[in-house]
Design a protein around this nucleic acid. Structure first.
Length: 586
RNA sequence: GCGCCUGUAGCUCAGGGGAUAGAGCAUCGGACUUCUAAUCCGAGUGUCGCAGGUUCGAUUCCUGCCAGGCGCGCCA
């Protein structure tokens, strides 16, 4: 596996089919990957034979790539190896291709080979491997497509981590969808994944929130009581104050400082519970809600400062204590202890990441909003200062979300307390549409979220398109059951009856899932799965129009029943990864 | 000024060192006595932001520029 540096994180993936297996030894292989490996092996054999016979004179053989051509006229798989080797072989690409093809082992699954275009070698296979895919799905069920590629990697995935001082926004909703699905994907390819929400309940914002809550509480008795200038204006603080009054009518008996301390702890706890409930309704649950205040109470900040001090990475200037993060490539050094003796946000965050590392995670993935990208440098510096490689921390930066209504951006003003919260969004469009839309685009793209489209129950709405495919299959299977027809197993039917172009297209799409999953997980690109689901649904709808199932004579009917039952399994699986429901009827 | 993201069809966006660059929407035209027409089939649309470079080959990689978004605190 080759590791490449990207600015926003590390993407440890390359198309390394030649020589490097994508699945570890002794683990299950998908039909698809197995097929590719076989063809690559055949190509290597042919090239070696050609070299041995002197027809191909090259010093070394480059990595052999194999891809599915965009145009299926170009075969099931195609390799550009002849184009790559042409230079060192001092021959025209097509000539190299011809020589390789001459030496290819005969027979087997390869039905035909052709040299095409500038020198591609196109493989046309017999359909057996596609039918083998159906058997694999039948055996593995919704585990189909999973692999053990990531065995040994212990990932801590931190996402959302919204401040516990107000409702979550739409970027939080995007982060929740991306993070949750990424966690599911990483698990599917064999990583051990632990998810965390970091609760920033000890900083300035929590103090401001506590004073806002206290003021609202006071105002319940005395409307003229002054509200802090920098306070949080939202209605929710007033609602919270009312609850507080019910629970603690005696709060004013406490001295001011204790009252604020109580409001801070109680208030942030309330907000955390709200966030937890909102996220649960959205299908997102965390393994741990990590409290910043626990770090403070455990003395973790002092401990990590001591650690850095002993390494000689801290210095004093202008009354403050600084972390020499520039030593590890950061733009500037960072204040760790302010001149007033309090800590900065980064101090607690370093302590938190220290804590993560001490718990034995080998990979820390954080998903942040676009306003935090400037923070990557200092955190990577901190990770290195703590004695780990910069690659241990990987940061995914999500981009901004613009909500559109009637084609126009929805204006929001946080200052005026007017903005669409995550909960507003979910209430309006539903969990499924919200998640699907967020997972439809690549994480780093700026996203236009069309509210009108998301609620539309029509073909225009992609989430319904996929769900409808699942419902349609469910309906067929229901009717089959009503007619007393049970879905047979692969062994009981003649799969070779599946010859229609629409059927073969579907089988290829099913076969491609393991690799899609691996790519989506390793590239941290959940949207690949959304697109996969849309393609699979599209192929099914087309098949459904062109091919009948229950009306056909029994042998074909049974083969098609097996096909659609397995399509349904895969649709369930991918919708499950996306956190979207797979309805039996619509 | 520096950094990050984005720039592909009228719109929203996929894709990606190679074979005629894709989808959905929108537009136009077809398909329901037949397992859900929330569906399908067909038609048109492109200087892949601009300019260089690397390469047999660049829309893809590199550099510079232009445009839009977002950052650059002893805030979090």
């Amino acid at each position: 596996m080759v590791v490449q540096l990207c600015t926003a994180g590390f993407f440890p993936y390359r198309n390394s089919y030649g020589g490097v297996s994508l699945v570890r030894e002794g683990t299950e292989m998908s039909v698809w990957l197995e097929q590719k490996q076989q063809l690559i092996a055949a190509l290597r054999e042919a090239i070696d034979a050609a070299r041995a016979s002197g027809k191909l004179q090259v010093e070394s053989v480059p990595e052999i790539g194999l891809e599915v051509p965009r145009d299926k006229q170009h075969g099931d798989f195609a390799s550009n190896i002849a184009l790559v080797m042409a230079r060192s072989a001092r021959k025209a690409p097509r000539e190299v291709a011809e020589i390789i093809v001459e030496h290819l082992p005969q027979g087997g699954v390869i039905r035909a080979v052709e040299v095409a275009g500038p020198g591609f070698i196109n493989f046309f296979l017999s359909n057996d491997w596609l039918y083998a895919t159906l058997r694999a799905i039948e055996e593995q069920g919704e585990a189909y497509g999973n692999s053990s590629y990531g065995t040994g990697e212990k990932v801590l995935l931190e996402f959302v981590s919204a401040n516990p001082v107000g409702p979550m926004n739409v970027v939080n909703a995007r982060a929740a969808a991306v993070g949750d699905t990424l966690a599911r994907l990483l698990r599917a390819v064999g990583h051990t994944v632990h998810t965390e929400f970091y609760v920033n309940d000890a900083g300035n914002q929590a103090d401001v929130f506590a004073r806002s809550l206290e003021a609202r509480y006071q105002q319940l008795r005395d409307p003229s009581y002054p509200f802090p200038e920098d306070g949080y204006p939202g209605e929710y603080v007033i609602d919270l104050a009312k609850v507080l009054q019910e629970e603690r009518p005696d709060l004013l008996d406490l001295p001011y400082e204790e009252r604020i301390a109580f409001c801070k702890r109680w208030g942030t706890d309330q907000m955390v519970e709200m966030q937890r409930a909102d996220l649960a309704a959205y299908g997102v649950e965390f393994d741990l809600w990590f409290r910043e205040r626990d770090l403070h109470e455990a003395g973790a900040l002092e401990a990590v400062i001591q650690f850095l001090k002993e390494k000689g990475l801290l210095f004093e200037e202008e009354g403050a204590l600084w972390f020499r993060s520039t030593q590890f490539g950061d733009d500037k050094d960072r204040v760790i202890v302010k001149s007033d003796g309090s800590y900065t946000y980064v101090t607690a965050d370093i302590a938190y990441h220290h804590n993560k590392l001490q718990r034995g995670f080998t990979k820390l993935i954080n998903i942040w909003g676009p306003d935090h990208h400037g923070y990557i440098g200092r955190m990577k510096a901190a990770i290195q200062a703590l004695g780990y490689g910069a690659d241990t921390l990987e940061v995914l930066i999500l981009q901004y979300v613009a909500l559109l209504r009637d084609g126009q951006p929805v204006k929001m003003s946080k200052r005026a307390g007017e903005f669409i919260t995550m909960q507003d969004l979910v209430d309006e469009v539903g969990k499924d549409a919200a998640r699907f839309f967020f997972l439809h685009r690549s994480p780093e793209s700026h996203l236009d979220f069309d509210l009108d489209l998301a609620v539309e129950q029509s073909s225009e709405n992609p989430v319904f398109y996929v769900q409808y495919a699942h419902a349609r299959i469910s309906s067929v299977l229901r009717q089959a059951a009503e007619q007393g027809i049970t879905v047979p197993t692969c062994r009981e039917v003649d799969l070779s009856l599946l010859q229609h172009e629409a059927e073969l297209d579907l089988l290829k799409q099913l076969a491609a899932l393991p690799e899609e999953l691996l790519q989506a997980a390793l590239l941290r690109e959940p949207h690949r799965i959304t697109n996969y689901a849309l393609e699979l649904a599209g192929l099914f709808h087309s098949f459904y129009t062109h091919c009948h199932i229950l009306g056909e004579e029994p042998s074909l009917r049974d083969a098609r029943l097996v096909l659609v039952a397995n399509i349904r399994t895969v649709l369930r699986k991918v919708l499950g990864l996306l956190g979207v429901d797979a309805p039996e009827q619509m």
